[in-house]
Design a protein around this nucleic acid. Sequence first.
DNA 1: GAGTGGTCTAGACCACTGG
DNA 2: CAGTGGTCTAGACCACTCC
Lengths: 239, 239
Amino acid sequence: MTLSTQSVIPLYSQIKESLLRGILQGELRPGEQLPSQRELCEQFGASHMTVRRAIEELVTLGYIKAIPGKGLYVATAELEPETSPLVSFTEDIERRGMHASSRVLDAYKTTASTILAKTLDIHEDTALIYLRRLRLGDGIPMAIQTCYLVHSLCPTLLEYDLASDSLYRILQNDFHLRLNDCSAMIESALASEEEARLLELPIPSPVLITEQITYTDIGRPVEFLNAIYRGDRYRFRLR
Amino acid sequence: MTLSTQSVIPLYSQIKESLLRGILQGELRPGEQLPSQRELCEQFGASHMTVRRAIEELVTLGYIKAIPGKGLYVATAELEPETSPLVSFTEDIERRGMHASSRVLDAYKTTASTILAKTLDIHEDTALIYLRRLRLGDGIPMAIQTCYLVHSLCPTLLEYDLASDSLYRILQNDFHLRLNDCSAMIESALASEEEARLLELPIPSPVLITEQITYTDIGRPVEFLNAIYRGDRYRFRLR
DNA sequence: GAGTGGTCTAGACCACTGG
DNA sequence: CAGTGGTCTAGACCACTCC
């Protein structure tokens, strides 16, 4: 891991991403104890306050448990069947011990409407990528995700295998976008006829709808995402 | 405002509550500029980092906007028709410019079941107050709230006029409970027959259900709350 | 330029845990 | 006791805005 004080990205954010990668890639196992905050300070060459800020964000997101007088522990997935709405679909499904996949319903290049331009803080008619996917966990339909991505940030995205690869992993690893912040809206609705058919739900069925905007570490909007989750499979947890 | 370094309550939390009270009680108007962070440091006799932590939490909750190079501003309500799930019903309704009231459906003293005892971190059979209310905004049914409160923390609560007073204001002002943290769960469902009747909804109708535990500043559980919100009137916003 | 919010450091102290 | 997480200070520097 290379941390840089010269970077535009805040140090605490780099530390957070570094730890998160360790957790998600399985180097740090659930329940395992992390190095103490003092040790992490040395490891990253940062001060206590800076390291704590990174840890605090991971605690808020539910990846780490901090027990005073004892230490830091990687959160155990089994205690949390609920999901933070700000976590990627693939990450969440894999945390639940299932296999994530997608059926691409639609994918093409388009341009930004007035509303989307405002939402993503770009000029009207800027090139966007439209992507609509049915998301599956162990082959069972779980959600429908529709997103608009800024084309210039991931120009060759449509050439990827979007049915099996995680969108966020592609964006992070291949297009070097450090996704960080996120604002989201949650509401409840009845599944439409098409949604019910795709999600294999009876009519009427409740669904959870989220709309979110994902930003890079430096606050640049990357994506507008609308997701429709099966009401019987999803609950969101906040702290 | 009396801040105390000797208190169990962290300084940043006291500063946050102090500023929040100013905003909620209208001393600081929406859109108005707050004193600069340096000035707040002097005012509260705290360091920059401590004041910033208080401000950051208020920014996250949507009460304050921080604009680099310009200053801190009280958030303008009209931009945010959505609600943070961690805000009290009365506060939220009043922020929307409506009048909040309640119809008490049920209110009595009871004891903690095994599950509730675990949830609220108390012994089984500890005295609790059960309170079920229909919550109205300008007379229109908006939500059904069912809560269990630890009796010892608010022993004479049932003597209050729970139809017109804000529960949280009673707890804070009369029982001196500094409510702070909160963990919540959100899910989607269809309104039951009774719920639809109370909320004046057709069948089928989607509703948002939240379950939350409210803690005091020192992390003691005070309340378990289950709320059922009309799907057509509520969306929750997260940051 | 002075003033703003945002990040960061190098120390310090506290309450708590466990041997 | 030494080690842990959590809080706090008094400074510093940066990028930004507005005059």
